[in-house]
Design a protein around this nucleic acid. Sequence first.
DNA 1: GTCTATATGTGGATAGAC
DNA 2: GTCTATCCACATATAGAC
Lengths: 209, 209
Amino acid sequence: MTTDARANLDVGRREILDAAAVEFARSGYAATTIDAIAERMGATKGRVYHYYRAKSEIFADIVSAGMQELIDQIAPIAASADVSSLDRLWRMAHHHAALMMTRNSFQRVAIQSVEMVRQHAAAPSLADTIALRDTYEQLFADVISQGVADGYLRDVDPRQATKPVLGALNWITVWYDPERDSADGTAAINGVADAYADFVVNGLRRIHS
Amino acid sequence: MTTDARANLDVGRREILDAAAVEFARSGYAATTIDAIAERMGATKGRVYHYYRAKSEIFADIVSAGMQELIDQIAPIAASADVSSLDRLWRMAHHHAALMMTRNSFQRVAIQSVEMVRQHAAAPSLADTIALRDTYEQLFADVISQGVADGYLRDVDPRQATKPVLGALNWITVWYDPERDSADGTAAINGVADAYADFVVNGLRRIHS
DNA sequence: GTCTATATGTGGATAGAC
DNA sequence: GTCTATCCACATATAGAC
């Protein structure tokens, strides 16, 4: 395959992923039809099946892209050496919250995949994404671990503590409606992210009384 | 209809709800078949359709039961006059967390319904449950409002503040596996509920620094 | 590379025997 | 009241024309 052919393949696939992410996010995996994805692209089934062999592969690629997006953007924050562990945790939470809104479709699908993996049912090509999610959660666990060591946070189990933290943040995808709340703009998104970052950091913080 | 006939109807339905809750919780609405529900009961489709006209009605009844269970058990805690607003919030969170584990099937289905309502897709008979959920969230909003007035909590918007609180707690249904974690017993469930109640209350608490 | 058929499987719902 | 048998709609995936 030439470089050009591969590039064309990627372009064709990306268009499908963008359309499918919106449909999956809106209707869930089972209720989303290939016809609906094609219609959103202004095409028909034939085009979709030219680039993808199966619906499950489209879904898996969206989940993978969503998780990679999280890792790529949060890992640098987790690694910033000149910022305290407490502030790093706050900034990680803030940016994660913002991504739940600005990249709502892909992130909603990534959340749906958690359920699908749990239901060992339709989780054939989702195997790779489990490792990605584990890597991502470890970024938070490591910073929380450091926060405990630094005396900022209560003496919690780092790995357990990521659950309520990411649970609260991921829940944004449940109530956030990109169409209804699109008028809000970046200022409102930033305000919500502020409130959530405050909430999860304070939730783990050592109490001075 | 005689009183006996009504009682028999209820018994027949309850058996279906219990079996269906497990299946819906495990596989989701779309992926759950009436055959699977019947098989879990040691019966066939015919029995299910004798008591229910449609799959969607079974689902709606489970959601309704799950929500009612929450309201019935948390409302008294919210109303206990001799307990401080801060402690009431802690106890509400603690009991909510415990129910996510002890009544995992019904509560998982109730959570799934949030997505289904959002996806205006298959939400015909789910209309009633929206009001139940709103009532329930208001229990938390009222106590949070009181906690702000009492000076225990930061000056948050009570209705907005319920989102990260219930988000963190509801997320328990995502990772909790009743089969794998059944050996844990009530002690472990209580420990998890403690950690979650601490987390969400501290998340809103006024900082003394 | 994109389209229009179409083959095929599955599952909700119903009919009617017992 | 519970079963078996069946209808029928829908959606994934494929075949083949253009």
